[in-house]
Amino acid sequence: MLREGVSNILKFYNYVQARTDARIRDYPLMHNPIEMSIILVAYIFFSVYAGPRLMANRKPFSLKIPMIVYNLSMVLLNAYIVLEFMLSGWATTYTWRCDLIDTSMSPQALRMIRVAWLFYFSKYIELLDTAFFVLRKKQNQITFLHVFHHSFMPWTWWWGITLTPVGGMAAFHALVNAVVHVIMYFYYGLSAAGPRFQKYLWWKKYMTAIQLTQFILVSIHISQYYFMEKCDFQVPMWIHLVWIYGVFFFLLFSNFWVQAYIKGKRLPAANDKSKLNGSTSEPITVVANGKHKENGNVPHYTNGKIFMGKVKEI
């Protein structure tokens, strides 16, 4: 039984190796699914268990300067990704309808490969979002939606850019996601800069709306496939998966929108007993992508426990 199981795993591993696009195989973290799976499992373990316990009896770090530098760097990185996606096809040769994958070794096809990998790699950099929350003892900001989104995206993208040649209409959601991240990280950078920038953040309530718009655009674009008379996209399965992805996350963020803005619910602050550990944090406003930022008003206290996406009346 064990031998058969190991044999099946090896067969699947060899199948993945054989199917991997040779143009991207030698990029970092692309050799096999084991490396990225270990990283993401370690991320989840740190986020929901090890990190909170490590910080339980420690004072929170400020990290103001690192956060400003990080967020503004992410703005530049995502802006570059948007530019490269546009120049790789979306602003040059793509029709924004039935765009097939260029499997050649042309300069433009290789450029699409590079930016797709960079987009994928940026998802590992974004794991620092959670690390900042842990080190600042903002555990109530690490929701189920936050952790799931941060781990699900890089895991699925590994399979997407190895088993399928990169590009074509199925890559539209990456372009849109990078645009949204330019806006989001600009907001986060201003928020991290301190209270004097709060007056410039009047648009924070629209962040979730921007995220919902992203999923609507992705779903509408990919839905064209089902109404076209003929579209010979090389791997139709990824069309279906992108559509499911868009609808699934639209429902998740819609639920958050209803809970947070229509029903007036928020993630709860811990009770006053939590003051014993000396950690403080501010009331939060939950924004897009499962991430949450402080609004700089009256302080509350956290005891290092994690609230995995529970929304309760305050």
Results as ranks from 00 to 15, higher is better:
T93C: 07
H292G: 13
Y94V: 15
A42Q: 12
L212D: 02
M74Q: 09
F12I: 02
I216L: 12
R58E: 08
W158N: 04
K312E: 13
L145A: 11
S104C: 03
G278M: 05
H292W: 12
N8Q: 15
R266W: 08
I39R: 00
A116E: 04
N271P: 15
L267F: 12
N78V: 14
N255S: 09
T93G: 11
M153R: 05
M105C: 08
R3I: 03
L29F: 14
S37A: 14
V48P: 01
I314N: 13
H150I: 05
F46H: 08
Y225K: 05
T93A: 14
S62I: 07
C98N: 02
F121K: 01
T130V: 09
L54C: 12
V247R: 00
K305P: 04
Q198F: 09
L10W: 02
A109M: 04
S274Y: 12
L118Y: 06
S122G: 13
W257T: 10
Y206K: 04
S7I: 04
Y43C: 10
P52N: 10
T162E: 02
F148T: 11
K230W: 00
Y225M: 01
C98T: 07
F227D: 00
M308Q: 11
R136L: 08
L87P: 09
I101S: 11
T156Q: 15
H31G: 09
Y301I: 06
A193P: 06
Y13I: 09
L100A: 05
R58D: 04
M67S: 01
S7V: 03
I38W: 05
S62Q: 12
Y226D: 08
G168R: 10
N71D: 11
A178E: 01
Y187P: 00
S219A: 10
V286F: 13
I68F: 06
N57V: 04
N57C: 10
F307Y: 07
A209M: 13
G309M: 03
M67T: 01
A109C: 04
R19I: 02
A171W: 11
S281I: 11
S37I: 15
F186A: 15
A91Y: 05
Q224E: 05
T20R: 08
F46T: 14
T20K: 06
I284R: 15
K291R: 07
S73R: 07
S104N: 03
I125G: 07
I101M: 05
A22V: 12
G246E: 07
F227P: 03
F132H: 08
T208H: 05
A170G: 01
R114C: 02
T103P: 05
A269F: 06
Q198R: 13
G51K: 09
L145G: 11
L241I: 10
P52L: 08
M184V: 10
M1K: 07
N8R: 15
L83T: 13
P66I: 07
A91E: 02
K310M: 01
D26F: 02
G168I: 13
K293W: 11
W238Q: 07
Y15G: 06
S73P: 11
N140D: 06
G246H: 09
P66F: 04
Y80A: 08
A131P: 01
S223K: 00
Y124D: 08
V258H: 14
I9D: 03
L128R: 04
